[in-house]
């Protein structure tokens, strides 16, 4: 590359790397969602999802995840102003939101499995558990990732001059929220 040209990766190479990871991750979700659509459209006996799944509880879960996205942007803007205490507080809120989401999902899964919906029982069960499970793994990883950032915050790593990593964990977290918006619509509502 011409050295006079500024690199497209500078100064935020970490952010661009996270975006590239998220796009490859988006492709795996796109593959799963498209496979789900193909299986469902070619199957005339596909049940109405809401006859099996609970929409109100999942709508609440969607709300919780959107709220945790808001606390995440609040965490980033806190540290951009140098407010370390605010960063800690909002990171904890975000992690609580993610944990609440996972708990409700665990409750929902337990309920459905007790009622007889399993991965191997039907294509409906297979697509449901794979899609929500793959997303749930992302939420779990996100909570762990946020925990690492929180630990680094307690070690005094971030300041008004240094907050790139907080913004990057935010990108990941918002992406998980974005995917859930699509999964909620395509798996539960439609």
């Amino acid at each position: 590359m011409d050295p006079a040209q500024p690199s497209p990766l500078s100064p935020n190479w970490g952010k661009i790397m996270m975006w590239l990871f998220l796009m490859s991750d988006a492709m795996s979700f796109a593959g799963l969602l498209c496979a789900y659509a193909a299986v469902r459209m070619s199957n005339p006996l596909w049940p109405v999802p809401s006859s099996i799944l609970g929409v109100p509880l999942t709508a609440l879960n969607t709300f919780i995840l959107i709220c945790s996205s808001v606390t995440m942007v609040k965490a980033v803007s806190a540290i951009q102003k140098g407010d370390v205490a605010g960063l800690k507080k909002f990171l904890v809120f975000t992690m609580l939101g993610g944990t609440a989401f996972l708990s409700i999902q665990a409750y929902e899964w337990t309920h459905l499995i007790r009622e007889g919906l399993t991965v191997q029982k039907s294509l409906f069960g297979a697509t449901f558990f794979v899609l929500t499970g793959f997303h749930g793994c992302h939420v779990f990883s996100g909570v762990v990732y946020l925990g690492c950032i929180l630990a680094a915050t307690f070690r005094g790593r971030y300041s008004a001059q240094r907050w790139e990593s907080v913004e990057i964990v935010g990108l990941y977290w918002h992406f998980v929220d974005l995917i859930w918006i699509l999964v909620f619509t395509f798996v539960y509502l439609i």
């Binding site: 005339p44 006996l45 596909w46 006859s51 007889g116 919906l117 039907s122």
Partner: peptide, 19 residues
């Protein structure tokens, strides 16, 4: 004999039209 794709619950298949 319903195909294996049918859910275990007694869902009304008449409503469960194609996506």
């Amino acid at each position: 004999a319903p195909p294996p794709a049918q859910p275990p619950q007694p869902a009304a298949p008449a409503d469960g039209g194609p996506a």
